[in-house]
Amino acid sequence: MIEAINLSKSFTSYKKQDGITGTLKSFFHRVPIKKSAVNQFNLSIKKGEIIGLLGPNGAGKTTLMKMFTGIIVPSEGELLVNGHRPSERSKEFRKKIALVMGQKSQLWWDIPAMDSFSLLQKYYEIPEKEFREKVEYMSTLLGVKDLLHVHVRKLSLGERMKLELMASLLHSPEIIFLDEPTIGLDLVAQENIRNFIKEYHRKNNITIILTSHYMADVQALCDRLVLIFKGTKGYDGPLNDFEKILGTKKSVYFTFKDKTIHDDSYWNELDSTWNEDRTEVEIKLDEQQLRNVSSEILAKFPVIEFHTEKMPIEKVMKTLMANPDIILDHSSQEGEK
């Protein structure tokens, strides 16, 4: 579905010099500054996959998405999306893709969403019957039937985002690019959007590329993760393996009221980390030890609360963002194997 080989994009800006002489100088001789946004990126995606494209701000995720959709032209490398070169922007290609950007709106602000939809119907030449059915199906699923005729500027962000999603799916695209679709939404709205995407994917078997800073999105939707750091690929593989990047050990957390428990020699044998208040300890355990050690602690100390890690990938992500070298080493080792 998507084949990217050595894909690169760099932006050129010009050095700005101060003062009038500087301006004059730069008028005649501009000093270009090249900034590489994406560098030698390789990626292969099969039909029907849901890929999570992750990375810190400014890592090049959005640039990648814009190259995949043909909005910007790659500086180097080969790119095929659904058999088309996106930069040629052929009509057939544009009819097969959709892009949703959480921070931008394609709905017209001063008219109801339904009016925007019917304009999109004309753009994409969607037959009337298909269009009606599609609107009916999606608005029911998203619970926005009553909002279709409300002026978009009067909607909440969550409501608008649902309609934005609908707008980009009207023409039944084969590949959908979701760029931070849940940004700024409350927890319920986030979950609604996630469930909708999941259901829509299940029914239509489309290819989805998703970027998000919320690990819950990734956890719920993606089978496969692609990590991008400073324009280069860090990790590419199944979600389950990603959790184990930092080791296969599981973390268990125990909370105590009594601070003196910290001083007990019992902890010395374990891989334990205490919080500053000396009231909570994180223990890293192998899977086979997990049950024994946990029950031992529960029996031995007055535990007031305990839990295991809810979202291991969130922790992995945090660690990697703080220290990207881990993953870059990891992937080079992969290459050697």
């Binding site: 814009k66 959709t69 043909g70 909005i71 922007r89 009509k91 057939e92 544009r94 009819k95 893709i97 959709a98 892009l99 950007m101 931008k104 394609q106 753009y123 994409y124 030449e125």
Partner: peptide, 13 residues
Amino acid sequence: RTGNLDYTLLKPV
């Protein structure tokens, strides 16, 4: 300037 042109470029027109 705001990049709103992105959506325009995606349309098959």
